[in-house]
């Protein structure tokens, strides 16, 4: 059985709930009181992840931390079509991993701004927002040129990959950190497409398509 150490309002946890749902994989959620309880820094949780970060996945005793790493594991393990993470295609794989790293940069900026605005985290909010906008501009431009080539997704033409799943949540939650997406039309069209993926589920702050 799969156990997901989870926090409802975390975009990094949500991307795993979303992907597990898309893949139709059953799992148990173990809620961790990230805020206000700071349970991710508690002794019991540090034994599971010494970095004190969510999410963590436990698959029959195989324990993995890091949302992006967990996406690669789930895709390689459960996606029989090999479309979400095509392990046999060196170029696509390289590109996906490049954008997974980009997703971490979004976490460090747009997600940080959201923690500042909503949950009182102390950090340089102007720097977080400015850097998030720089990343959004890069992605928007990339998606705009991709659309010109009839490529619907970040790395691929027709079928999305885990790079799309990885980048999606903290872009969608950016307004909660005071980062408007109005200036990024290609990003907005891409998020609309993503919400049409079969078995898409929402989280607090991210609505289903058409609502």
């Amino acid at each position: 059985m799969i156990k997901l150490y989870d926090y409802e309002l975390s975009g990094n946890c949500y991307k795993l709930r979303l992907f597990l749902n898309i893949l139709n994989v059953d799992y148990d959620r173990i809620p961790v009181d990230f805020y206000p309880g700071r349970e991710h820094k508690s002794d019991w949780f540090l034994q599971i992840n010494p970095l004190g970060q969510l999410p963590v996945l436990d698959h029959d005793g195989f324990v993995l931390r890091d949302a992006q790493a967990i996406l690669t594991y789930l895709a390689a393990k459960f996606d029989a079509s090999h479309k979400w993470y095509p392990t046999g295609d060196a170029e696509i794989l390289g590109k996906i991993n490049m954008w997974l790293s980009f997703a971490d940069s979004i976490t460090a900026t747009a997600s940080a701004a959201r923690l500042h605005d909503g949950l009182f985290y102390q950090l340089d909010i102007e720097a977080a927002r400015t850097n998030a906008h720089s990343l959004f501009r890069v992605l928007d431009e990339h998606l705009w040129f991709a659309e010109e080539q009839r490529q619907a997704w970040i790395c691929t033409d027709k079928h999305p990959t885990i790079a799309d799943i990885a980048c999606f949540p903290y872009i969608m939650l950016s307004e909660e950190g005071g980062i408007s997406r109005m200036a990024y039309p290609a990003i907005c069209r891409w998020t609309d497409r993503l919400r049409e993926i079969p078995n898409f589920i929402a989280m607090s702050g991210i609505f289903e398509s058409g609502s």
Binding site: Y7, E8, L9, P31, V32, D33, Y35, G37, E39, G118, E176, S204, G205
Partner: peptide, 15 residues
């Protein structure tokens, strides 16, 4: 934690 989690989920939908 479960009770808090439920309440936070609801509130974050309103936010």
């Amino acid at each position: 934690t479960a009770i808090r989690s439920f309440q936070l989920m609801i509130f974050a939908q309103d936010k």
